[in-house]
């Protein structure tokens, strides 16, 4: 088992890293099982190439496996050998069942949270001067029109929010308005959910199309009030 010990440890360590460590690194996300499988396959290929570079290492690598499978001199490993020979076909059967049985889960609909805005809404700057009065007025409009869903605390937890899926954006979260430009918010507020492109799943969003009810100046003031109230700054190009 000497020559096989290291590869086995390496494969297990790689799996544990991909499954449990990588998703917990800030900014990362859980890896889909297909990607984990692909990475493990690449790792295994690397190990096989490395271990079979010379005739000597090749024998040291394959030899124990051949002896294990044929049961020659396997001694105390005989039970393990039978275990592997029984478990392998069962695993293949289980995987086949899993990939052909109908799923009880609804189809997954990928939704892009921040899809690209139309050209006319990129790079616009807020035409309203950033004065305390305008910010205060923006917060007043926010309280009247936006807070029922986005919350009096700008946290997406307004009294009308609970039934909506996707939930209203939480502006205090640094991954929402803090990473967007003011012109992006102008587009989202003006056109609402129905203005999203197909990858934004417009049929799900409850965001109103405010352009039919509010003048542009009010929308720019609301944007100002949102950033100030949520203690965030708009993204700018340095």
């Amino acid at each position: 088992m000497g020559a096989l010990g290291k590869p086995i440890i390496l494969m297990v360590a790689m799996y544990l890293f991909l499954k449990f460590v990588l998703p917990n690194i800030p900014g990362s996300a859980p890896l889909p099982s297909s990607l984990i499988f692909l990475y493990l396959l690449l790792t295994a290929s690397g190990i096989v190439i490395y271990e079979t570079l010379s005739g000597e290492s090749k024998d040291a690598f394959w030899g124990p496996m051949q002896r294990f499978l044929t049961g020659k001199n396997s001694g105390g490993l005989q039970v393990l050998r039978y275990g592997v020979l029984i478990l392998f076909p069962l695993l293949v059967g289980w995987e086949t069942y899993g990939s052909t049985a109908s799923s009880d889960l609804p189809p997954t609909e990928g939704r892009t949270i921040h899809p690209a805005p139309p050209g006319e809404y990129t790079g616009l700057s807020n035409p309203v001067p950033k004065t305390p009065e305008n910010i205060m007025q923006g917060k007043g409009f926010y309280a009247a029109f936006c807070s029922p869903c986005h919350g009096g605390n700008f946290d997406g937890k307004g009294p009308a929010a609970r039934g909506f899926n996707p939930p209203p954006a939480n502006f205090a979260d640094p991954t929402t308005i803090a990473m967007l430009q003011e012109s992006y918010l102008f587009w989202r507020i003006k056109k609402g959910g129905v203005g999203l492109p197909i990858e934004g799943a417009p049929w799900r969003s409850a965001m109103p199309r405010w352009e039919v009810e509010l003048p542009d100046e009010w929308i720019w003031k609301i944007i100002m009030g949102e950033y100030d109230g949520a203690h965030q700054s708009p993204r700018t190009w340095e």
Binding site: F88, P89, V92, G93, W94, E95, T96, Y97, T100, S102
Partner: peptide, 12 residues
């Protein structure tokens, strides 16, 4: 699916 799984076990 059970039949497909049985065939896969036999092949393995």
């Amino acid at each position: 699916s059970y039949m497909y799984a049985a065939v896969a076990v036999a092949l393995a």
